[in-house]
Design a binder for these strands. Structure first.
Lengths: 192, 192
DNA sequence: CGCGGGTTTGATGATGCTCAAGCCCGGTGG
DNA sequence: CCACCGGGCTTGAGCATCATCAAACCCGCG
């Protein structure tokens, strides 16, 4: 399993991973399997890990007073999942993260984070990742503010076509900030 | 003017600034004044600087086909302003940034970015900043997806009360993703 | 076969947008 | 000192978009 992560880092950085680096990675990242709907993080808990998804799919969401789930992020293999705010500050999270499919993860515990971050290749990779993350969040915000439901759905198809066969419609709808009914109508509209 | 920035860095990092660091900062950051409505960045241009606001206020926004301005970010003294995506990738920006008040800036050009980033105190400060930025963006997205116009306005008051006397209502409305009319009605509602 | 999760369809209603008009107020020039 | 102008704010009427609620449908699976 660690092989997948080592490859991932390799492809995304200039620096090489030394043998010691690889050893550290193997030691730091704990393999973990989650079944469908099993939690990586529950609302109110402190986020103890950054998770790298080897296979499977996860969702991060909030639950409001009426019990409605609002999806904030979706992730599939070769993505990372965690609540950054809760992890870095070690404060309780307002989000829950669970597995939507059977999922294999590599978990980096908080205690190891600093040490792993000293690996040059890892840090390079992280910086790039943060950057992409930032700009895609900015984009998403722009879309939520400016675009109508239908255009947002088109953007989703363009940006993350894989999601369409990985998540059911009501999850995608929530991610887009619309209801499942509205998404259903949009899809039948555009078909014609 | 550089003094303000040096102080700012000092307050937000463990590491001390050496004399050489301070020299580099003074060399790298170009002082610049903008009058009301003068541009720091125009849509379609490549973002050449990261700007630190010494005094004044700026806004970052897009303009849609109908000429409507959609405010993405607001910033006042002791904040940073730039289009991160455009800056790091040196690609054309979809945003414009202009001064809302008379504004004094310190501009860090792209060519200096790497060198300045080698200053430990500066990098520490940046990492923290990125973090805060990330989490506040996440929050904002959450609010846009989950809260009604009125609650979003209350959140704005809570999080950035200074904005209320620094920007006119129609700018704040746009930042919240609502129209000025709606914001006006909300304000008169809650008064009673 | 029947159950359960997911999707669709329809009717109704709330929220917030659009367009249009009027108001308020500080600043400028006669 | 007043008249006027312009930017910003308010108010109202009508409308678009999307949410809500309820019911039916679809289909894979035990």
């Amino acid at each position: 399993m660690h092989h997948s992560l080592i490859n991932y880092i390799h492809e995304r950085s200039q620096s090489e991973l030394s043998n010691a680096d690889i050893q550290l990675i193997k030691e730091a990242f704990i393999p973990k399997k989650l079944g469908k709907k099993e939690f990586l993080l529950r609302t109110g808990e402190v986020c103890k890990y950054i998770g790298f998804i080897v296979s499977g799919a996860t969702r991060q969401y909030t639950v409001d007073d009426k019990g409605n789930e609002q999806v904030m992020n979706l992730a599939i293999e070769q993505w990372w999942t965690s609540d950054r705010e809760s992890f870095y500050n070690q404060t309780p999270s307002i989000y829950a993260i669970d597995a939507w499919e059977e999922t294999e993860l590599l978990l980096l515990p908080f205690e190891y984070y600093t040490r792993v971050n000293h690996i040059p290749a890892f840090r390079e990779m992280r910086v790039k990742l943060d950057d992409n993350n930032y700009t895609s969040n900015q984009r998403r915000m722009n879309h939520i503010l400016n675009l109508k439901a239908e255009q947002r759905y088109e953007e989703l198809i363009r940006a993350y076509p894989e999601f369409l066969h990985r998540f059911p419609q009501h999850i995608l709808a929530s991610y887009l900030g619309i209801t499942k009914e509205t998404l259903s109508r949009i899809r039948n509209q555009t078909k014609k």
